[in-house]
Design a binder for these strands. Structure first.
Lengths: 217, 217
DNA sequence: TTTTTGATACCGAACGACGGTATGTAAAAG
DNA sequence: CTTTTACATACCGTCGTTCGGTATCAAAAA
């Protein structure tokens, strides 16, 4: 294979292929050879030139996965015209209202049997997303009076754990009824913390999604 | 190595060694050869006679880990003289008051970098423990009036996810302050669901444990 | 303008370690 | 005495990773 003038394209290709295979077959059941076979002529040397290990590819893949949603979180976090509670509400609204043509639904990824990838996402959610995006919003909410809590850090973690992990259909696959139950319990929980982030519009949309997701399996 | 008249002892030995190594080095970084080297003369044939794969050993190890606490859960679940809410409270009390000489503290297990084992425990917690132990208690509570919820299944999952995973120092290592924060938020959450499972005695004990755990690291 | 040089992109054979299997053997069980 | 069980051991294919090498390119030197 000829040398590529734009090596980022090669990197990007490796990540595309790896992402797909990791989702389809799981990280551990995807071999380097599998990746090579889907690279269209590139070799083992190419991979190990751009990545120092298979694990390194996993990190890059998860980074790319999470950076999308992290960008949205960062955008909302940094908005000037909303108070803390409104920002939280907007986050849930946006994450649920996002169009269905997501990668999510084209590959129908299933972390149900993908320990390494799930682990990666869990760590990123709890160690990065919670403190960097949710926590600042809660702190703002405390300042502007829209959120009351004495334990902002733990609250941020709890919210992310439930919303991003527990309610994530990629991780725990739910029937529409289960998804509905989780959503209601989540809403109740948030209300218990004085956070009113749910409304009927959201609920309706969520039910549509649950049905759609089931169909795509 | 001579043939053992009581093969259960060999099985048990393999599990002991595997458990220790899985905890010390992580499942993926523990090779079959590592296990053999710690078996005191037994060979690969012995392992593959009693277990069909490395994965199979992992399953057996996690089963043994969780069966202990599951027994306690089952015992409380089946008690006759407590209502639902009292049983929930007893569960938290018992799990926190258990003596420190647990395996937990002798090996100081750390699932922080042990995806497969964490995954195993997560699945067992959500797919087995929640529906088989917590859910029946909640159902009883609904019947006897001590618990009110329209979504018992989701509530059971949420409780287990937070209590067994999020607050588990093996999985998320906390400073004493963080452990305290989590505990308080958890209590608040439970209160939001009308569940009064915390008191000062528990809180005090938890803080002691958090300090102890930190020391043992 | 041509040549040199050094960095970068990629190739592919080879390696050691791994999980798993096939076959053998001897002790226990029946 | 026969069958089953509890192991031992040699071996296999696959895996992730390494490494010596080549081709290509841009920029500096001639």
């Amino acid at each position: 294979m000829a040398r590529n003038k734009h090596p980022e394209e090669t990197v990007s290709l490796i990540l595309d292929v790896s992402y797909r295979l990791f989702m389809e077959k799981g990280y551990e059941r995807t071999s380097i050879q599998d990746i090579i076979d889907n690279l269209g002529g590139l070799s083992k040397g190419a991979i190990y030139h751009h990545f120092k290990s298979k694990e390194d590819i996993l990190v890059a893949v998860t980074d790319r996965m999470t950076s999308q949603s992290n960008n949205i979180l960062a955008y909302i976090r940094d908005q000037k015209d909303l108070n803390g509670q409104e920002k939280l509400k907007k986050i849930f609204k946006d994450s649920i209202m996002r169009p269905v043509q997501d990668e999510i639904f084209t590959v129908a990824p299933d972390l149900h049997d993908n320990p390494r990838l799930l682990f990666s996402i869990l760590r990123e959610t709890m160690d990065e997303a919670a403190p960097n995006y949710i926590l600042p919003i809660i702190m703002q909410g405390i300042g502007d009076g829209s959120i009351q809590t004495e334990h902002p850090k733990a609250l941020a973690e709890l919210i992310m754990l439930t919303a991003n992990i527990w309610m994530n259909p990629m991780i725990f696959d739910n029937t529409p009824e289960e998804a509905y139950e989780k959503f209601m319990i989540f809403g109740q929980m948030m209300k218990g913390f004085g956070l009113d982030v749910l409304d009927d519009e959201l609920l309706k949309r969520l039910q549509e999604l649950a049905v759609l997701y089931q169909k795509n399996k």
